[in-house]
Design a protein around this nucleic acid. Structure first.
Length: 749
RNA sequence: UGGGGAUUCGCCAAGUGGUAAGGCACUAGCUUUUGGUGCUAGCAUUCAUAGGUUCGAAUCCUAUAUCCCCAUCCA
């Protein structure tokens, strides 16, 4: 299915290629404290998908470290979700609670290393001691406890000798870490409660940050994939594993953006509110974005999977338009499902010139769906059509039945309206019409032209069914709460009329009700006596859209003007340097500015300048390239020196190499620390400036790309870059781009 | 406010120095006994903004703006 590659797959491929991992092991690790939703589907798709595509395996693990919130019914729902989506987890379902004793032993080990301590400060004080984002925290006085004491206390915690909250076990990391998560994070807390799996065996339970990385490690997970909000937790993840010395092919955490869809909510808390508040009818309400909801509504696993694939995986928070999901389900069902006729809002039509009855053979599938199957369609003088499909005062462009306009009954005859019968309020209650005997579908010799075919049912044989029409749950794109609920999210039609074959033959459980949408026999409430159908999704409706009252005019997207922020002023010293660089060396003010403001760059630049008096080129390369390396590292960590940079610049000044080659050489220098002359020699990177050498290569490129030559001559000057690029590629980057540019330009004139 | 992440079309999203992929949505036209499907075409002189480096920048550098995450004994 998935052709596209995302950043996670790129990482996986690189790790496989570099030999970092021999086998790919992923895991889907939900906490069993709520029903899975389509966001879980994305995670399932990513984790199981990667495992499958790279011949690895994926575990299903219940992250059950907080016994107060978890329950076995959620475990079942989670298993169902994975199975329904068509994935198989490796071995048995796993539970973090399976590893409680191993995790406990690791905690003891950490205590023995002096890397963990039992803290007995109360919650409030602990919060104060943690500090704020701008102020460092202070370590608790209990951090000084001896290893022996910690061991004893922890053992007693485990035995259940203390009340909830009396003590916790904390990692001893850094109370002044900029990452708040690293300020001595909690590893164990006391919970004297019953766990749904381990019962009363434990009085202490590990925290997420301690349990998760270890569980991944224990299971041999290679890539621990989670959502963006755990980015800050990655440091603890690595700290625990590294501190414990758990090195051999240990797991690494990678984060992706969670799925957001407009007109719905996705958080467990908000979903729970809707269910408990009675705004919806249980966790499997078809309006909910839960897996159970989609399943009940009639979505197919394939459509959900395709959707997950189509939205991609990235690190930018995003909100996907529901129409993308709707497209996926339509696209899937269109190819699979029988077409059938059902009238939702019936209007009686009597055919005054028809007598008796007949059965019409009608295929279940349109010509463009390569599937076989047909049913009998009873037909007689009394039928029902959709109220919408008749209009006495039709708007412009109306294709359906009017007093003047005949219409075809799908699979049947063409009818013409003769008389409209109305009730005392002026509403049409019946139409008297005539049919054209020669117009029968498939053998039409009537010569009558109609603009459309409408669906209908035979009055005497039609079955009454209940149809539930679902619309989006919220009327706002980004709903905040129950105030934003769409009051019309559910419309129940008790007396819709459907052709009999649907009920008697049961050719499928999903149908397309022609011209209306896709429907699903409700798996819970459907009975033969009282059939119930759920609307899965409507058909695309370009007519309905047109007739809708003037859609809220697209607000012209004004490009917002950006307010410039304030730039910090230069210190005196910096200003002096800046002045010197601009006046004495003739550097442009931007480069001089960057250089002057950064101590490391300044000294690097001046060191290089002492070797080679070429301030402008030197400054450019220091600001552009060296600065990048200095972002992550200190000067003394670099493999190259200022002197080597000076040498590199000299080669540029000499025109031995081009700027482009210089970058290549620089990259190499960063890695190996070799001198530039050595690199240039080893790779044969001396630049080619001789037009006699370059010219034939250009001719070749031009000959190979006649299309682009034509485009270029037609005025697409951007393609100059394309040709230069091709020539450079052909010469391994050695051609002098300035010369190439000039020659290409001349040749293509 | 300190730290971490992000910013490419209305919505997703590829792309990491050489012609701005693709999907959804939208707009036309053709096909059609579903106003469906299918097909064709059109949809970013520009990648948050401003500068800089370069023959050449979405991509490298600098500054700025905006959004998200972190101060639960939740996960």
């Amino acid at each position: 299915m998935s052709e596209s590659k995302n950043f996670l797959r790129t990482i996986v491929e690189e790790d496989l290629k570099s030999g970092k991992n021999k086998e790919i092991v992923t895991r889907f690790p939900p906490e069993p404290n709520g029903f899975p939703h389509i966001g879980h589907a994305k995670s399932i798709f990513i984790n199981f998908g990667i495992a499958r595509d790279y011949n690895g395996h994926c575990n299903l693990r219940m992250d059950d470290t907080n016994p107060t919130k978890e329950d076995t019914k959620y475990v079942e729902a989670l298993k169902d979700a994975v199975e329904w989506l068509g994935y198989e987890w490796d071995g048995k379902v796993r539970f973090t609670s399976d590893y409680f004793s191993q995790i406990h032993d690791y905690a003891v080990e950490l205590i023995k290393m002096g890397k963990a301590y039992v803290d007995s400060t109360d919650e409030e004080e602990m919060r104060e001691l943690r500090g704020t984002v701008t102020e460092a925290g202070k370590r608790s006085k209990y951090a000084k406890r001896s290893i022996k004491e910690n061991l004893e206390l922890f053992e007693r915690m485990k035995k259940g000798e203390f009340k909830d909250g009396e003590h916790v076990l904390r990692a001893k990391i850094d109370m002044s870490a900029a990452n708040m998560k690293m300020r001595d994070p909690l590893m164990y807390r006391i919970r004297n409660v019953h766990h749904f799996r381990t019962g009363d065996a434990w009085a202490i339970y590990p925290m997420y940050d301690f349990a998760h990385c270890l569980s991944d490690y224990i299971e041999g997970v290679s890539h621990s994939i989670c959502t963006l909000e755990f980015e800050n937790n990655r440091d603890i993840y690595n700290w625990v594993l590294d501190t414990l010395g758990l090195t051999p092919s240990r797991p690494y955490q990678h984060e992706f953006a969670r799925l957001g869809i407009n007109y719905t909510v996705m958080s467990k808390r908000k979903l729970l509110e809707l269910v408990e508040g009675g705004q919806v009818d249980g966790w499997d309400d078809p309006r909910l974005p839960t897996i159970a909801g989609y399943k009940r509504k009639g979505y197919t696993p394939a459509s959900i999977l395709n959707f997950c694939d189509s939205v991609g995986v990235a690190k930018a928070n995003s909100m996907v338009d529901v129409s993308q999901l709707e497209f996926c389900i339509r696209d899937d069902l269109n190819k699979k499902v029988p077409r059938v006729m059902c009238v939702l809002d019936p209007l009686k039509v009597t055919l005054i010139n028809y007598e008796g009855s007949e059965e019409i053979n009608a295929p279940y599938y349109p010509h463009d769906v390569p599937k076989e199957g047909e049913r009998k369609l009873p037909f007689s003088s009394e039928i029902y059509i959709e109220r919408d499909d008749f209009n006495e005062n039709p708007p412009k462009g109306y294709f359906r039945l009017t007093p003047e306009q005949p219409v075809r009954l799908r699979h049947g005859y063409i009818i013409t309206c003769k008389e409209v019968i109305k009730d005392e309020n002026g509403n049409s209650i019946e139409i008297k019409a005539e049919y054209s005997p020669e117009s029968k579908s498939g053998s039409d010799t009537s010569g009558i032209k109609v603009k459309s075919a409408i669906h209908w049912v035979d009055a005497t044989t039609a079955k009454t069914v209940e149809v539930r029409l679902y619309d989006r749950l919220f009327s706002k794109e980004a709903p905040e709460g129950v105030d934003d609920l769409n009051p019309d999210s559910l419309k129940v039609i008790k007396n819709a009329l459907i052709e009999p074959a649907v009920i008697t033959d049961k050719p499928d459980e999903r149908f397309q009700f022609e011209r209306q949408g896709y429907f699903y026999a409700d798996p819970v409430d459907y009975t033969d006596a009282k059939p119930v159908f759920n609307k899965i999704v409507g058909l695309k409706d370009s007519w309905g859209k047109k007739t809708k009252i003037a859609e809220p005019a697209k607000k012209p997207q004004v490009k917002k003007v950006q307010v410039d922020g304030e730039v910090v002023a230069m210190s005196e010293e910096e200003q002096a340097r800046f002045d010197k660089y601009t006046t004495e060396f003739g550097l442009n003010s931007e480069v001089a500015n960057i250089l002057a403001r950064d101590e490391q760059l300044t000294s690097f630049f001046e060191d290089a300048l002492a070797v080679l008096n070429s301030p402008i080129n030197l400054a450019n390369i220091v600001v552009g390239e060296v600065a990048r390396e200095l972002k992550e590292k200190q000067v003394d960590e670099l493999k190259f020196t200022a002197k080597q940079i000076a040498e590199l610049v000299k080669l540029i000044d000499d025109k031995t190499i081009s700027n482009k080659i210089a970058k290549q050489v620089f990259e190499e220098m960063v890695k190996s620390g070799d001198n530039s002359s050595k690199i240039v020699k080893a790779k044969g990177l001396v630049q080619i400036s001789d037009p006699a050498v370059i010219s034939p290569i250009i001719d070749e490129v031009i000959a190979k790309n006649p299309d682009n030559v034509a485009k270029f001559k037609a005025g697409n000057t951007k393609l100059l870059g394309f040709f230069v690029g091709q020539v450079l590629k052909a010469t391994g980057g050695k051609a002098n781009p300035k010369v190439v540019n000039q020659l290409v330009h001349e040749k293509l004139k």
